[in-house]
Design a protein around this nucleic acid. Structure first.
Length: 867
RNA sequence: GGGCGUAUGGCGUAGUGGUAGCGCGCUUCCUUCACACGGAAGAGGUCACUGGUUCGAUCCCAGUUACGCCCACCA
């Protein structure tokens, strides 16, 4: 412990500069902290002494955002409090450089795209560097090999990570920079692969050939957690099917899926269609007989109440298809275009002819053509009715998702397993959410899961799924025969590494093997940040000391992804919660209270506010927002924070400027004791607030006390501390010592929020870093104080206020000399004021102050000294 | 359609079952002995709306509205 001796240092000699300011403190101290290893994690600490933080690894895909500064400051404030409270804080930093955002940025930045079929070119240099998001169209991008592409990814992310680190250092995050990780590093790949293989061996990972939500731009499957709805224009087309008793009309927004129609569906209770259930109708144009079926999900009041089921227009189609055991007549390919071959079922020459015409077209063009044809034949009634409706998108994509049948890897997540779901809900109840109501979002998500977690992605820059498949005598893969690597050989790349018992020459050969080409979803790696950050594979000894982590800070938007998936993986791997606390930060809104986002173009780059208002100023703004609450980007608040930092420097310079009292000096005077009693209460309150993750409250009480300290107490004791007005040595020493005790404690109270200004002052008179000093304890100084003095400062301040008001009303300087004045006060107050009368006369420059009992506090009979 | 959160002077925010606090901004005044990156004083609010519980509601309850977010089976 570092702090036991802190209370001995009140009387240290101080060397404050003549002129103080906050300029340059960031550079000066961030370098000093690094050189002195102030935030270095001491791995010799016991598990009980460690406070570990599962820091969010920022996505290293380019631009920084003030939102980053906001939430990371919250975490840092907690880290600093815990460190000062005697914990050995494990505060690492990760970089999320794995996945689509990086791929996309590399494509644009270097003007390239990945073509895994190409060979590696060791001498490749990109056509240019520094392209922005708009400059490169797919057609202009140079195709390069996967290995070349990944090299460029790594090159770019290394640059981006340097920028992030520089920003974090300037902001004053107390991260241990010796503890960093990357989600694409070999260690991260090994962690991901090991966890996956463990899932596989426990039966938690499996593969399945099934309809999958598919992004046609990125040509990859996506998971439920990556979906978002977007309101899109569409149109209802009223289309007639030939039924046994005449036309049956349905309404559809996707007439191009007519050849994929496998049935019509209506609600079992819908009286209009009772006679049709069990019969068949004929699709227009394609002339396929399809059954009319009943299902509870059909909505009586929607459209005509009867809908066509296609393979697959939306996820409801998938449910119908599965539950009603319908045939698969999928017509959309991986590229979002209509497949070349007509599905089974279309047999008529006319139907085949029409299909041939739309084959290869985009969904959009196919729709146009089908509508034309339907109108020509009269199978479509009237014009299309424009509507606006929600459509599912991949959150990073810009074309609607299609549903394509593919073989994919899944991890069980409770979506199809009530027992697991209940376990996960129970685990969530044991996790301390800050604020508590955020737990509901977690529970909503878990209860709303509709399927297992699809983790395979048909992309390039990511962690390969570490399996191979045996090929049969015909050279066809046997997906039942999954070949896995030894744990010791991780990480592996199945496209270049060879499974045990095979040789490279057998790749792709009959009775040989092929490697899995898919990579894992980024969340499959991000869900392992405790294992990555803690050194699960690379440093088991450290891992045992930091896992389970104490804190997971994160944004509310990724409760369904990051928080949930991390909890799931930890539950599967260790049966434990990955952390005991989850601190959820709110959004940053622009001054118009709109969420900041790149698409709105209202993002503020964080380096600017730091340059303009100082790191302490920006941190003050961020720290003033409570967890879970949105905050406006507010430069005025940053100015206030900067002002506070400047005030601390000046007040400290003043308080430390008086002659140092003798070693045996004590705080004897009632007013000085009263001030320290107030401070003791503030320390207790701030400590309690911090303990319950309410850092805003801690800041608020400290700040409130501080302004009263400077405005009132400092003014009251100024003359006495100078030894003016015939005060005794004891009276003088009491004031000076009280000032120093207050400053010593106040600096430490503010240290988590304003690390630069407080460290600067600390360095004038103390040794070591304030950020390794002990968090203040009221018992260090308050036990010897007479509690009868409590409240005296407040009473004195009330009298000072009256004196100032009288001068303000008289429009004279606060320093104007007063010949005489009468202070009237109620009986219970007058005794207190008598105790502090000399200090009151000093602050008011009043030669003769008469104290008179009255019903209300009042200053009268002000007689100024004539000029 | 379901859920969660928020609503307090021009703006940003505390707070409590008993006459509403703070900061910014604003008005007026005060300069140089810690601080003009300053100091002092002042004006400014029927605590979103409607009911209910209560002696008494900004606070508790119900409903409404607005905003934000999450979720939803979206023909």
């Amino acid at each position: 412990m570092t702090g036991a001796s802190a209370s001995q240092n009140y009387l240290a000699k101080a060397a404050a500069p003549e002129k103080v300011g906050v300029e340059g403190l960031e550079d000066k101290w961030s370098i000093a902290w690094e050189n002195d290893g102030v935030y270095r994690f001491n791995r010799e600490a016991s598990r009980e002494q460690v406070y570990s933080i599962d820091t969010p690894p920022p996505t290293v895909s380019g631009s920084l955002h003030v939102g980053h500064v906001f939430s990371y400051t919250h975490t840092d404030v907690v880290a600093r409090f815990k460190r000062m409270s005697g914990f050995e804080v494990y505060y690492p930093m990760g970089w999320d450089d794995n996945g689509l955002p990086t791929e996309r940025r590399v494509q644009n930045f270097f003007g390239v795209r990945c073509d895994p079929s190409l060979p590696y070119d060791p001498s490749f240099t990109p056509p240019f560097e520094g392209g922005d998001n708009k400059s490169s169209k797919a057609a202009d991008q140079i195709p390069i090999s996967r290995r070349n592409f990944i090299e460029l990814c790594e090159r770019l992310t290394t640059e981006d990570e340097k920028q992030f680190e520089a920003l974090w250092r300037k902001l004053g995050l107390s991260v241990d920079w010796a503890q960093t990780y990357q989600t694409i590093s070999p260690d991260a790949q090994a962690v991901s692969q090991k966890a996956f293989l463990n899932n596989l061996s426990r039966g938690e990972a499996y593969q399945s050939l099934a309809p999958t939500l598919w992004d046609v731009t990125f040509r990859t499957a996506v998971a439920q957690a990556e979906l978002e709805d977007r309101e899109q224009p569409g149109a209802y087309h009223r289309v007639g099917f030939d039924g046994p008793d005449g036309k049956v009309f349905i309404e559809t927004t996707r007439p191009e899926l007519l050849p994929a129609c496998v049935a019509l569906v209506a609600h079992p209770d819908d009286e209009r269609y009772q006679g049709l259930f069990g019969k068949t109708v004929r699709t227009p144009l394609f002339e396929v007989e399809v059954p009319v079926v009943a299902h509870r999900l059909a909505q009586i009041d929607k459209g005509s109440g009867i809908a066509m089921i296609c393979t697959f227009g939306d996820v409801t189609d998938v449910i119908w298809w599965r539950e009603l055991d319908l045939p698969n007549r999928a017509i959309i390919g991986f590229d979002g275009r209509i497949l070349a071959d007509a599905p089974e079922g279309i047999e008529s020459a006319r139907g085949l002819e029409i299909f041939a015409e739309i084959a290869g077209k985009t969904v959009f063009s196919a729709k146009q053509r089908i509508v034309e044809l339907l109108q020509e034949t009269g199978d479509m009634v009237g014009d299309a009715k424009p509507i606006s409706h929600p459509v599912k998108f991949f959150e990073k994509g810009d074309k609607p998702l299609e549903i394509v049948s593919t073989r994919q890897w899944y991890i069980r997540n409770g979506g199809r397993d009530a027992a697991l779901r209940d376990e996960l809900i129970a685990a969530g109840k044991k996790l301390n959410f800050h604020p508590d109501f955020m737990r509901v979002r977690y529970e909503n998500w878990v209860n709303g899961l509709t399927g297992d977690w699809l983790i395979s992605r048909q992309r390039f820059f990511g962690v390969p799924i570490p399996v191979w498949y045996a090929l049969d005598a015909n050279g066809e893969p046997d997906f039942e025969k999954v070949l896995t690597p030894d744990a010791a050989s991780l990480p592996v790349d199945p496209s270049t590494d060879v499974p045990a018992g095979y040789t490279e020459s057998q790749r792709g050969q009959a009775n040989g093997f092929i490697g899995e080409v898919d990579i894992m979803d980024t969340w499959a790696t991000s869900s392992l940040t405790p294992q990555l950050a803690g050194g699960w594979i690379s440093d088991p000894e450290k891992y045992a000391k930091v896992f389970p982590f104490d804190l997971r800070p994160q944004g509310q938007d990724i409760i369904r992804t990051w928080l949930f998936s991390t909890l799931l993986r930890s539950h599967q791997e260790s049966g434990q919660l990955p952390w005991s606390n989850a601190a959820i930060s709110g959004w940053i809104l622009d001054p118009d209270r709109k969420k900041m986002s790149k698409s709105k173009g209202n993002v503020v780059v964080p380096a600017e506010p730091i340059d303009n208002h100082g790191a302490d100023g920006v941190r003050y703004w961020a720290a003033a927002a409570r967890l879970g609450t949105d905050a406006a980007f507010d430069e005025a608040q940053m100015k206030v924070g900067r002002k506070l930092a400047v005030k601390i420097l000046n007040a400290a310079r003043f308080a430390l400027g008086f002659e140092v009292p003798a070693a045996d000096a004590t705080v004897t005077e009632a007013l000085d004791q009263a001030m320290l009693l107030d401070l003791a209460a503030v320390i207790d309150e701030a400590t309690e607030a911090f303990a319950s993750y309410d850092h805003t409250k801690a800041l608020e009480v400290a700040e409130k006390f501080f302004w009263g300290f400077t405005d009132d107490y400092l003014e009251l004791v100024k003359d006495r501390a100078y030894g003016q007005g015939g005060v005794t040595e004891q009276e003088q020493a009491s004031a000076v010592l009280a000032l120093r005790i207050a400053l010593h404690n106040l600096l430490r109270l503010f240290a988590p929020f304003l690390p630069y200004a407080t460290e600067e002052v600390w360095s004038w008179w103390q040794t070591g870093s304030i950020h390794r000093s002990a968090w203040p304890k009221s018992a260090d100084f308050a036990n010897s104080l007479d509690v009868a003095n409590r409240g005296l400062l407040q009473s004195a301040a009330a009298a000072v206020f009256k004196i100032r008001k009288a001068k303000s009303d008289a429009q004279v300087s606060m320093r104007a000399d007063v010949q005489s004045a009468t202070l009237k006060a109620p009986a219970e107050l007058i005794g207190q004021l008598r105790q502090v009368a000399p200090d009151l006369r000093a602050v008011g420059h009043i030669f003769e102050l008469n104290l008179v009992e009255a019903s209300e506090l009042e200053l009268t009979d002000l007689v100024l000294v004539a000029e």
